[in-house]
Simulated scan of single mutants.
Amino acid sequence: MTSTSTSIYLVLDMENDLVHDEGFNGKAAYGEQVRGRGIIAKTRNAIDKARQAGIPIGFVRVGFSPDYRECPPNSPIFSGARKNGIFKLGTWGTQTHPDLGQREEDFDIVKHRVSPFYATSLEAILRARGIRRIYCSGISTNAVVQATVREGHDRDYEIIVLEDCCCAPSVEEHENAVQGLKRFCTMSSSSDVVFE
């Protein structure tokens, strides 16, 4: 990768178990919001724009070993993973949605918690590349997007959220999360964003 950009676009948790029509959550509330808001097509549009601008792409995925050794047993958000056999690394469910066009040169950041900064390679990548600005979007607004914005802000990164490429299990949860994040980031959209 030869980009000298000081920006990166992080595509957050856009994996099959969460967003694909055939995925575990794609058949439930997340899937309804993803389809209703046109999240896949809008995210692909944003990825293509970022590539044209020479901005590196990082795909962040949540996943656990087949025996779920990293999965916290008492977590309200992750306890269902083991029970339902989802978020298992090396399976179709933890692969990025195929329509997003992930490439070999893109960064692939695997996480075991909500935050993409916790116990992952993300911070090392950002520092090594001299990144100062993070564009981000993904599922869900009130989990990984919120964690990225708040933690990125406190690490002195400029954060731009592509709001139309995000959703939560309900419209209300998404809107509440967006309102809470506006103090910490800039809100944009896949059509308005200028990657630089």
Rank of each mutant, 00 (worst) to 15 (best):
A147C: 09
C167N: 08
E105I: 01
M1V: 13
F195V: 07
H153Q: 08
S79N: 15
E173M: 08
E22A: 14
V161Y: 03
H112L: 04
P56E: 01
P76R: 11
A53C: 05
F59Y: 10
H20N: 13
F78Y: 03
L122F: 13
G63P: 02
G36N: 04
Y135T: 02
Y9G: 05
R150L: 11
H153C: 12
R133N: 09
R61E: 11
V144P: 07
R155K: 07
I55L: 04
L122N: 10
K49Q: 10
V62T: 10
V178I: 15
I86K: 01
S188Y: 10
I134V: 11
K111F: 00
R69I: 12
T148N: 04
I139D: 00
D21S: 12
S188A: 14
S140N: 07
Q33G: 07
R61K: 13
C166W: 03
C166E: 02
F64I: 11
R132Q: 11
D17H: 06
S7P: 11
G58K: 02
R155S: 06
E105F: 07
S188G: 12
F107N: 04
S188C: 12
A29M: 11
E15M: 06
V60I: 15
L122W: 13
D67I: 06
D164T: 07
A28N: 15
C185L: 06
G63E: 01
T96M: 03
N84G: 01
F64M: 05
R150G: 04
A147V: 10
A177R: 00
A50W: 02
A50F: 06
N16H: 01
K182V: 07
L12N: 02
L89H: 13
R37A: 12
Y157F: 15
S7Q: 07
H20S: 15
Q52A: 15
Q179S: 13
S65H: 15
D48L: 14
A119R: 14
Q102D: 11
T141Y: 10
I86H: 03
N176R: 10
Y9Q: 09
G23Y: 02
K111E: 05
C71G: 05
I55W: 03
I109L: 09
Q95K: 12
E151N: 10
R129V: 04
K182Q: 11
S75A: 04
A41V: 03
D108K: 11
R127K: 15
G152P: 06
A147N: 06
F64G: 08
P169M: 02
Y9F: 15
D108E: 12
K88R: 13
A147R: 04
E172S: 10
M187Y: 04
E104D: 14
G80W: 09
F107W: 06
V161K: 03
N45S: 14
P73G: 14
N45P: 06
L18E: 06
T43P: 00
S75R: 01
N176Y: 09
F195E: 01
I55M: 00
